[in-house]
């Protein structure tokens, strides 16, 4: 059974339809990329999966359980966490308090301390800034905090919306290295990005979206073919 299975999903904002029949699956411990130009519905797709937007039709199954129509807080408790675009860390709270808030969605509270120690091991920079206000961290550190806060909830699947946004190339590399470590621990990862090269070389499979639909599915091998990638990303007319 797939960990996350989306079938024929239609979604949007009020009367404005954005997604048209999206379907994909992701297996445990795998990574999936979703790329496409601005405005094709990538963030809408993530918001629909985590319950922030109610879909018009279709199904979203997590571990075989239908999660369509559930509240975002209930979906987190079922093991699906989103690191939103712009990080949405709580800038007025300390780094430690931000991390502790991640424990809210954790099922097994008895291992909370172990989980906190584990993320500090993966993201050592957070230990040295533990008492600082999160809003005072640099963009890269805030991104690491947002990811750390999400994985503290012990998700089965982690969704990241534009994790490279506003980060320098070296910091992006650090963040993606840390994501590899998270995947190696058995957590599945879905990354939504505009930078196609970054994700196609990283993810086990990448979906290319255009106009609210999945236009192509490519593997890291396919991505080496520059022309094929360009056609998939911009359409065959370009």
């Amino acid at each position: 059974m797939s960990l996350l299975e989306i079938n024929d999903l239609y979604s949007g904002y009020g009367k404005v339809e954005v997604l048209f029949g999206i379907s994909f699956k992701i297996e445990p411990g795998k990574s999936l990329g979703i790329v496409g130009p601005n405005g094709v519905g990538k963030s809408t797709l993530l918001k629909t999966i985590v319950g922030e937007i109610q879909p018009k039709s279709g199904s979203i199954k997590l571990g075989g359980t239908e999660i369509k129509g559930k509240n975002p807080e209930d979906i987190v408790r079922l093991g699906l966490c989103l690191v939103p675009e712009g990080r949405q860390i709580f800038g007025g709270l300390s780094v430690t308090e931000n991390l502790q808030l991640g424990l809210t969605g954790r099922k097994d509270k008895s291992t909370s301390k172990k989980a906190l120690d584990k993320v500090k091991e993966i993201f050592p920079v957070l230990t040295s800034h533990a008492k600082h206000q999160a809003g005072m961290l640099s963009g890269g550190q805030q991104q690491q905090l947002a990811i750390a806060r999400a994985i503290i909830a012990d998700p089965r699947i982690l969704l990241l919306d534009e994790p490279s946004l506003g980060l320098s190339p070296t910091v992006i590399k650090d963040v993606f290295d840390q994501l590899k470590s998270i995947i190696s621990n058995g957590t599945s990862v879905v990354i939504v990005e505009q930078r196609a090269h970054l994700v196609t070389s990283f993810a086990d499979e990448t979906l290319i979206m255009r106009n609210g639909k999945i236009q192509a599915r490519i593997t890291p091998e396919d991505a080496k073919d520059e022309l094929k990638l360009k056609h998939a990303y911009f359409g065959s007319d370009n």
Partner: peptide, 17 residues
């Protein structure tokens, strides 16, 4: 702590459960 988080960002808070 949770209350202060809802004050800071009441959209991000539900995403943490």
């Amino acid at each position: 702590r949770t209350l202060r988080a809802t004050r800071e960002d009441n959209l991000a808070a539900p995403a943490l459960g």
